[in-house]
């Protein structure tokens, strides 16, 4: 059974048909990529999956359950975690605290427990801290735990965001342009990291601009153009697909 299944998903903003009848499935253990030129509707599609806004039409099933129209925090606690295209870390909090927020949906202490600091709360808090440190270590930034997250270098901030998403122990990780703004060395690092994540049993769906990254690591690729799915295939076949070459390189080049 597919881990994530999109069926005839549409998203309209007024007269703009940002996502037009997109269907595809993500199998457990896959790395699947969604590519397409600017404005193809990739991020809109992501937001429909993660619950930022509901799709106008169509359904999204996660683990066999419909999740379209659910609030983002409910989708997150079902095991779907995400990163953002323009990194969204919490200012004023340390890198470690940012990652600790990631464990929010895997812990339970409420207002009363927090105010009274019950023994169970104390134990839970220690567990949150220890697990969060493990994720910082996994990303090789444990030494930055106590630095303010938003004052870190760009690549490091991206790593904190990865750690935060992983701390939620997702079964499916959505990565929105994980290589945006990174140099080729950092991009190679991200590629290595994504395969590591997959090897830990986490399914990955990413939206990406950087072709080298996508072609190297993806098992399958979905190509979007003007909101519509124009191809879905392995990286090798996508590279041969004349339609894909046409939208990426333009009509004339494709004819050559």
């Amino acid at each position: 059974m597919a881990l994530l299944e999109l069926t005839h998903v549409h998203k309209r903003f007024g007269g703009l048909h940002a996502v037009n009848d997109v269907s595809f499935a993500v199998q457990p253990g896959q790395i699947k990529a969604v590519i397409g030129p600017n404005g193809a509707g990739k991020t809109t599609l992501f937001n429909c999956i993660a619950g930022t806004f509901p799709p106008s039409e169509g359904s999204v099933h996660f683990n066999g359950q419909p999740i379209e129209g659910l609030e983002p925090h409910r989708i997150a606690s079902r095991g779907l975690s995400r990163t953002f295209q323009n990194i969204k870390l919490y200012p004023g909090l340390t890198a470690l605290e940012n990652v600790m927020i990631g464990r929010h949906c895997r812990s339970r202490a409420g207002f009363w427990a927090g105010m009274l600091r019950l023994p169970s709360t104390f134990r839970e808090e220690r567990e949150i801290r220890e697990r969060s440190l493990e994720y910082l270590e996994l990303l090789g930034i444990a030494d930055l735990a106590d630095s303010e997250a938003t004052s870190l270098a760009f690549g490091q901030q991206r790593a904190v965001e990865f750690a935060r998403a992983l701390a939620a122990e997702p079964t499916l990780l959505l990565l929105d342009e994980p290589a945006a703004g990174l140099n080729i060395y950092e991009t190679a690092e991200v590629a290595r990291l994504i395969t590591t994540i997959r090897d830990r049993g986490i399914t990955v769906l990413l939206v990406e601009h950087d072709m080298s990254l996508v072609m190297d690591i993806s098992d399958e690729i979905v190509v979007l153009s003007f909101g519509q799915k124009i191809a879905e295939d392995t990286p090798h076949n996508i590279q041969q697909n004349t339609e894909v070459i046409r939208i990426y390189l333009g009509e004339d080049d494709a004819a050559d």
Binding site: G51, E71, A76, F84, I101, H104, C105
Partner: peptide
């Protein structure tokens, strides 16, 4: 937005 995405109600 990021808080919601991390499961914060």
């Amino acid at each position: 937005e990021a808080a919601r995405a991390m499961g914060v109600d």
